[in-house]
């Protein structure tokens, strides 16, 4: 695995980065379980892109800044990150609350973005279409509900977490609560402004997502004008893990087309 790790101080917060590959920049925004490890999909994307994976403030090895109260703070913070890294024509990819975050960034300022890909994003509400209550699930329910293919869940549950891993899990959960406990996993204002996103946008969803149901896909597609929805079959909430080849193929194909 070829990636480098670094810690940089941005807006008073220590942020841990993993980076790998060469090419157009691709900034990956993780979901509520963080980004502790360089995952196979990152490695594959790094064959064509400069893949940059920060851990958000309040997650993993990054600091927990006083100013972080909600998703709006995190979105503005990432505009600082884009400036700090001097990124231009960056391809923004985010999963789950990272997808929500990516959309919040894009409605604030998309001048540095080349494309946007959101994977099973939280962030909006469709009345009557309930998300899973991740805060009520125990470790086993969480693992089982994250994946369509239960062998992934079993793999996740096979090794009991060390104290350090447990600390990270709880830290990530705490920040997730800050961002998403109430209103539950959405920003009541976001849907009003998604029409402002004009960069090409890909919306990806697993057809068997128990966290944010795939029924949200069409709602996102209808709210973002220049967007396309792709549903991945036999897949849960984490297509980048469960169907990583298909995920990379779709994201790579989309970015190539969008930035041609």
């Amino acid at each position: 695995m070829s990636f480098t790790e670094s810690t940089e101080t941005i807006t008073g917060c220590n942020v841990r980065f993993m980076r790998g590959g060469k090419g157009a920049p691709l900034l990956f925004l993780h979901g509520s379980s963080g980004a502790a490890r360089w995952a196979p999909f990152m490695e594959k994307l790094a064959e064509s892109y400069e893949v940059i994976v920060p851990e958000h403030p309040g997650f993993g090895a990054s600091g927990s800044p006083e100013w972080l109260d909600g998703m709006s703070d995190l979105a503005f913070f990432y505009l600082d990150v884009i400036d700090h890294l001097g990124l231009d024509k960056v391809n923004l990819v985010g999963g789950s609350i990272g997808g929500w975050l990516a959309a919040e960034i894009a409605i604030r300022n998309q001048t540095k973005l080349a494309s946007l890909a959101v994977v099973a994003p939280a962030g909006i509400r469709v009345k009557g279409l309930r998300k899973g209550d991740v805060f009520m699930w125990n470790a086993e329910e969480t693992a089982r509900n994250l994946f369509h293919d239960q062998s992934y869940a079993e793999q996740m549950l096979a090794v009991p977490p060390s104290k350090e891993v447990l600390e990270t899990v709880l830290k990530n959960k705490l920040t997730t609560a800050k961002l998403a406990w109430e209103p539950r996993f959405y920003n009541p204002d976001l849907h009003k402004w998604l029409h402002r996103i004009s960069v090409p946008t890909l919306i990806l969803w697993g057809d068997n997502d128990k966290v944010v149901p795939a029924g949200y896909g069409p709602a996102w597609r209808d709210l973002i004008p220049n967007s396309r929805l792709e549903i991945i079959e036999n897949c849960g909430h984490l297509p980048q893990i469960e169907k990583s080849d298909r995920f990379v193929q779709l994201v790579d194909g989309f970015i190539r087309e969008a930035t041609r």
Binding site: F135, M136, W137, N138, E167, K171, L174, T176, A177, K178
Partner: peptide, 12 residues
């Protein structure tokens, strides 16, 4: 436990 101790209720 998930009911008794939601995130942030006590320190990590």
């Amino acid at each position: 436990m998930e009911m008794l101790l939601p995130p942030g209720y006590t320190s990590v």
